[in-house]
């Protein structure tokens, strides 16, 4: 058990009760009318969903950075999140979103499609460069098709639905979304965790990792499946929530011995914490309409990324 796991588990245990009470209406369980109903049916599922989605994104980011040996890697770059988004947008485009299960189902099919495409192109060789390029192409193809769906939306309502949905949020989510996402994210994090020893070996480069017994194709499959499950399930229930996978490993790394394997579980906890706190903040902000969580995290994430680049500038130049 490393220090980072304890720190972020502790912070999460503190943040969860606070987040349940926080909102446009602050709840006092003793005096607020229907307090337990609000907590049990609205705030708790939303908080649990924030934890589930954040954990998946955090673990995926840590695994991705370890795999690409690059601290600027983000799971969103590799086509699976855009693929899932395209699936969800397709459901919205055809008006299937009225059925509660169809939108997440379409998003998962989209994530699976992107995953299959990635595996088809890069899976056999297990090469990292090919995987990265394939991921970028899948991402831009899915992005282009999503833009096409927006521009050809049958009516203004569908268009605004799509655009709003793309800026992820956890508003009005229920236990149903939790039941969809939680098992998939758990399985995904477990797969990424299984890849962790191989990620450590990659620290010394691909040839050394292979000489230590790492099988590149098996590792790539673990990663593709793990990221499809964690990120795909997250997008399916919450829309696009960017930057979590990028930021979180940087927050966690200084608390670990910097081996990629030591990042995965604490990054899951820190991702859960970040999304939980951010979602509580957007609820509390005194705005006319609630700020979308995806927008809030991008507002936080983009300056962080810039700060990171500035810090690394000397090394990159």
């Amino acid at each position: 058990m490393n220090r980072a796991v304890l720190v972020f588990a502790g912070l999460l245990a503190l943040a969860l009760p606070l987040s349940l009470l926080a909102g446009r209406v602050w709840i006092d369980p003793a005096s607020t009318p229907n307090a337990w109903l609000i907590l049990g049916e609205l705030r708790l599922p939303r908080a649990v969903l924030a934890i589930v989605v954040g954990a998946g994104l955090g673990a995926a980011g840590a695994a991705m950075q370890g795999y690409l040996r690059n601290p600027l890697a983000d799971p969103g770059l590799f086509g699976i999140a855009p693929g899932a988004a395209l699936g969800a947008v397709t459901a919205l485009f055809f008006g299937y979103a009225a059925s509660a299960w169809l939108l997440p189902a379409f998003a998962l099919v989209g994530a699976g499609g992107a995953m299959a495409l990635l595996a088809l192109i890069a899976g056999r060789t297990g090469g990292i460069a090919l995987f990265t390029l394939a991921g970028l192409m899948v991402a831009s193809l899915a992005g282009a098709l999503t833009a096409l769906a927006i521009s050809m939306a049958p009516n203004a309502f569908a268009m605004s639905e799509i655009v709003l949905w793309l800026n992820g949020a956890l508003t009005d989510r229920s236990w149903r979304e939790v039941w969809i996402a939680a098992p998939l994210v758990t399985l995904g994090v477990a797969l990424l965790w299984r890849a962790s020893a191989s990620l450590d070996a990659l620290t010394l480069g691909e040839p050394v990792a292979r000489s230590l017994g790492v099988e590149p194709a098996r590792l790539l499959w673990l990663l593709i499946l793990g990221i499809a499950l964690t990120v795909g399930a997250g997008v399916a229930v919450a829309g696009i929530i960017g930057f979590v996978g990028l930021i979180v490993p940087h927050l966690v790394r200084p608390l670990t011995d910097r081996r990629p394997s030591q990042l995965i579980l604490p990054s899951a906890l820190a991702g859960a914490l970040l999304v939980l706190v951010a979602d509580s903040v957007v609820r509390v902000l005194p705005l006319v309409t609630e700020l979308r969580l995806g927008i809030a995290l991008s507002l936080l994430g983009a300056p962080f990324f810039l700060w990171l680049l500035l810090r690394m500038r000397r090394g990159l130049a």
Partner: peptide
């Protein structure tokens, strides 16, 4: 045991952790 020409070390881990990687098999 294989030692390539490139001295790539992607993460700033400690010497002991690097040497321990040799035990992976």
């Amino acid at each position: 045991g294989y030692l390539p020409q490139e001295h790539e070390i992607a993460w700033d881990v400690s010497v002991r952790r690097l040497v321990e990687l040799g035990r992976m098999p």
